[in-house]
Write a protein that binds this DNA or RNA. Structure first.
Lengths: 327, 327
DNA sequence: CACCGTTACGGTATCCGTAAGGATT
DNA sequence: AATCCTTACGGATACCGTAACGGTG
């Protein structure tokens, strides 16, 4: 058994069992992939893939478990390299943050300023995407940490660490009637067309929930991924905006006015997600602590350990049980 | 990086950095070990071992972490093979139980009888040793499970699952004066020479504790690892025996009499120990459940996950922190 | 016919074992 | 002197890439 065989195997699984794509991604030839996987199957004495004629179609039950374990081995192989870097090139290195626009634009700048001052030689890479995209960037090892608000709890491979809570404000043009309302209500808001975040972004679900609870159906005329777009269209008079309150900056946004709406919506929690089983270089721990001071080395380690893997383990149990019954 | 290099590395570390021994154990030549480790160090860019001239003396701080991770990778490689076997050779296989004499002789026979009936094709291997020895058999992968009473809690790599509680009886010759005592006390016992278990075996520590609590110093004239030896010497009139009460069988031990002593000692708990990170074939789960019915698949998995790895992780933290300060 | 996976073959690189050489205790 | 690790070298092996072949949609 060789590590390279496992690499071929896992990449093939990742590419939906397309050997050609796997070969391309790994800069080698299709026959190499084909042969090495066969040799691995031969050595282990089990079929990992089901072939339909000459087409690889499915993963066998043992293949599921094998790929899962092999993936962990490959991650550990990466970890070995990271460990080595940690000690050779202590100052330098790379930190890849996968995050959403709102975080990148409003929450991160202050932290990143401090971080680059402390670690001038660490190269920073910011990758934007939807919560789902950034989660998979981290699980695949392409990013070190994920920072987002929505829907990244569901990834079992990730450990989610709550960082801070925030809420929303309503953004309107100057002299807008809502500015004169004494206590802002959802009903009052609902009289105007609304511009807010895309579904599955930046706590959008909490906004929907609040309206739904009162039986209201908000008139959302435009959705966007980022706060800047929302503000722009509010300025154009297209409607009123519902934003994360950290996304309103009085000094910059002189053409707009904000009204606090914390009492109307459930607060959202921004979380930082790290991959279980990944070796984190020390500056990554420092970065996390800068972002959320309560998350120090000990706290994070504790989370990494305590966090149960029910989801994964149960699926393993199901596979094993299934194979038993099949015999 | 190749798996074989990691094998060479870990075995060398296990052999106290003696390349020659490692080579012998792995059935290869010293130069092979030497070269591959150098190549690995070269690829990673860190020294794993400290050399004093031409002698390998110590493990460097990064080496600690690297060996730790490499060990896990090798264990996963083993797991791959076990997974494959699980599906090819469903009935057959091997179960290696590392245990102490008392368990092997009195607790296990009934379970093993049931197990072999259920899995006739599984080869059973029973390895005896001290609690420390059997623990390391499991951590090194030479045994699948450890069963013992004493001192196996300290191994951080093992997950200990409580199986059952038991206590002691006093064994004497027929017509012994103690048989006429209404309620057995430690003071009464202490008037006779005592034969019992070796230190660090079969709950010996609880016996010491009980006497110490009353300020008594028992006159232990002979200690043994196994109950049969103890009983033999009691028959010879050398003294009275203090045994695990499951080790007294009225039908066999006709030349002896037992007196229950459960009220005098703290009960001991026999535990089964399995290695974290090891893939357990399904019949191993069944074996554990036969031995301790409350330990079913779900319970064991839960234990495997919840159990924190404080000991290990803290030592990692210490190494990392140390290296920081060193720079 | 376009795409995909397997088989066949030749070249290159890797890894091992033997033998010899310096270091340490 | 004995033990131990490293370097050097020749041979076997394994792996890869190119090319050709057989299925599949």
């Amino acid at each position: 058994m060789k590590l390279q065989q496992l690499r071929y195997l896992c990449e093939t699984a990742r590419q939906d069992m397309n050997l050609s794509k796997a070969a391309k991604n790994l800069h080698t030839s299709q026959p190499a992939i084909s042969k090495q996987i066969q040799m691995l199957e031969d050595e282990l004495g089990v079929d990992i893939f089901l072939r339909n004629g000459k087409r690889v179609v499915k993963i066998t039950p043992p293949g599921q478990l094998i790929i899962q374990t092999a993936t962990r081995m490959l991650r550990d192989a990466d970890n070995l390299k990271k460990i080595a870097q940690e000690f050779t090139n202590e100052a330098g290195g790379t930190l890849t943050i996968a995050t959403t626009h709102t975080q990148a634009r409003y929450a991160l700048p202050a932290v990143i300023k401090r971080f680059t001052a402390r670690y001038p030689k660490v190269k920073l890479i910011l990758r934007q995407g939807s919560p789902m995209q950034i989660s998979s960037l981290v699980t695949s090892g392409e990013a070190d940490v994920a920072i987002a608000t929505e829907a990244i709890e569901q990834f079992q491979e990730l450990v989610m660490l709550p960082c801070y809570e925030w809420n929303r404000c309503v953004v309107v043009m100057p002299k807008h009637p809502l500015l004169k309302v004494k206590k802002l209500t959802l009903e009052a808001i609902n009289q105007y067309p609304i511009i807010t975040y895309d579904f599955a972004f930046t706590g959008r679900s909490k906004i929907n929930q609040a309206f739904a609870k009162l039986g209201l159906e908000p008139n959302v005329v435009l959705t966007a991924i980022d706060s800047d777009v929302i503000k722009t269209y509010v300025e154009l008079g297209l409607g009123i905006g519902i934003l994360a309150n950290m996304a309103f900056e009085p000094k910059r946004d002189r053409n707009l006015r904000s009204i606090d709406a914390s009492h109307l919506f459930e607060p959202s929690t921004t979380r930082i997600g790290i991959s279980r089983n990944s070796y984190l270089r020390s500056y990554i721990f420092d970065f996390i602590e800068m972002f959320a001071p309560h998350l120090n080395y000990a706290t994070i380690q504790a989370k990494l350990e305590n966090n149960t893997e029910d989801g994964i383990e149960n699926s393993v149990a199901a596979i094993t049980a299934g194979s038993k019954n099949a015999n």
